[in-house]
Design a binder for these strands. Structure first.
Length: 421
RNA sequence: GUGGUUGUGGUGAAGUGGUUAACACGCCGGAUUGUGGCUCCGGUAUUCGAGGGUUCGAUUCCCUCCAGUCACCCCA
């Protein structure tokens, strides 16, 4: 218990931290390129924010939230996603007053009480982007392109961009009714999951993996045929902008998002080799959310990328960079009298920005040499009693195995010249 | 929340109802005086996820729990 982390969590150890830094660097670079600014919101929020924002009947809210009561008897929840919180911050700090369109990105931990499986954890990391303040289809295209370019920059291939429009409060209810109408006489023969979807979210029936349900849903009406004029027009423009930009996409009229706030444009980027959890990125428009959160009606769009899934995909394509943890110099000290001068040398080297390490376990010379080798040290500086008495050190080149005696006053400059040329 | 599957040292893994739980890698130490990477030698699990039960006896059989893993649900 004490030696096991909570279920669904993962430690990121020194041997893999480089992968994260690499991905995070890519995130920051691309966001800078597209003009998105980083925002950091709290890990927890008032529970109410997610209830209202995400939707009370969504799975995320109904069964996946980490909710707790604090000592002030407030109900708080660990964020299961970051769009609602970003909107909250946007309203709280009146960011809309600064500029017409706010372009923001975030990167951090999210929490969902789910059964862990491949690509799904209880604490996971998302990189997300939000553009608040415009209904212009060009921002839809920009957002989607950013997501695609991010994944491509990392080197991922075989990605599938699925695109759909889920309508707006004007046309979606119409579609919903037509769907229910279509399935009404088939309700008895649908799987039990779909029977409950029928009322909660009939669009999900279209997405069912059950073969029988798939057959039954053949010929079901498509949402894109039921969109209102405004949504149709918007969707057409998004599609043509993407086409002009050379972004390949697949129209998927069955693509549904699980969060209530989505409107119009919905998209998902899938990487099939990941198995069941193949959605690497997902997002869409949420033109009603800001008003729902107490702001004035403001259109917005965003997406989130699951970083663990990205890392899994990169691993499958062997795209993870090997991080060199080589050090420049390893200082080997022999015996007690050399300890202090060795430590001083270590400090002096670092003062010159030379990467340097030494042994602190009081090990033998041989063991220290092995350690230097493991640390991939370019040079080893040795000093023992003799060297201390002579005010010199032995400098060893670990590649050529050459070694020479050097006055201790000169060693730092000498190494600086070697390492920093 | 539901179902499948797995759980032996730091890691990958053999193995059996009964004296000292293979092997490989890793790690630690050594191969004459103060020197790495190769090689060789030695040391590295009072214990087989945890707790019960069956048994003369269980790591091996049963139950419960915990954890990993995969799938459903759902999502990034």
């Amino acid at each position: 218990m004490l030696t096991t982390g909570p279920r669904g969590t993962k430690d990121i150890l020194p041997d893999t931290i480089g992968q994260w830094l690499y991905v995070e660097k890519t995130v920051r670079d691309i966001c800078e390129l597209y003009g998105y600014k980083e925002i950091r919101t709290p890990i927890f929020e008032h529970t109410e924010l997610f209830l209202r924002g995400i939707g009370e009947t969504t799975d995320v809210v109904e069964k996946e939230m980490y909710t707790f009561i604090d000592r002030g008897k407030r109900s708080l929840t660990l964020r299961p996603e970051n769009t609602a919180a970003t909107v909250r911050a946007y309203l709280e700090h009146k960011l809309y007053a600064d500029i017409a369109v706010n372009k923001l990105f975030y990167i951090g931990s999210m929490f969902r009480y789910d059964r862990p499986q491949a690509g799904r954890y209880r604490e996971f990391h998302q990189f997300g982007v939000e553009a608040l303040g415009t209904l212009n289809p060009a921002i839809d295209a920009e957002i989607i392109m950013l997501a695609v370019q991010f994944l491509k920059t990392l080197g991922l291939n075989d990605l599938k961009l699925a695109l759909n429009s889920v309508g707006c409060p004007n046309c979606r209810p119409v579609y919903r009714e037509r769907l229910q109408e279509f399935f009404r006489d088939k309700l008895e023969v649908l799987c039990s999951d779909c029977q409950s979807r029928y009322d909660r979210n009939p669009m999900r029936i279209l997405d069912c993996k059950n073969e029988h349900c798939k057959e039954l849903s053949m010929g079901a009406p498509n949402i894109t045929d039921c969109l209102c004029d405004e949504c149709t027009d918007h969707f057409e423009q998004v599609k043509s902008l993407l086409t002009e930009a050379g972004i390949e996409f697949e129209l998927d009229p069955r693509l549904v998002r699980g969060l209530d706030y989505y409107t119009k444009t919905a998209f998902e980027i899938q990487y099939a080799p990941l198995g069941a959890q193949s959605a690497v990125a997902g997002g869409g428009r949420y033109d009603g959310l800001i008003e729902e959160c107490g702001g004035s009606p403001t259109p917005a769009i965003g997406f989130a990328v699951g970083l663990e899934r990205v890392l899994l995909a990169l691993e499958k394509q062997a795209l993870l960079p090997g991080v060199s943890q080589a050090t420049d110099v390893f200082v080997v000290a022999l015996g007690v009298t050399a300890q202090k001068p060795a430590f001083k040398l270590l400090c002096d080297l670092r003062a010159k920005s030379i990467k340097a390490s030494m042994d602190f376990a009081g090990r033998s010379l041989k063991a220290q040499m092995k350690q230097a080798n493991k640390a991939m040290a370019r040079y080893v500086v040795m000093l023992g009693e003799n060297e201390v008495n002579d005010s010199c050190v032995i400098l060893k080149d670990m590649i050529t195995s050459d070694q020479e005696k050097i006055a201790i006053q000169e060693i730092v400059n000498k190494l600086y010249a070697e390492v920093k040329d």
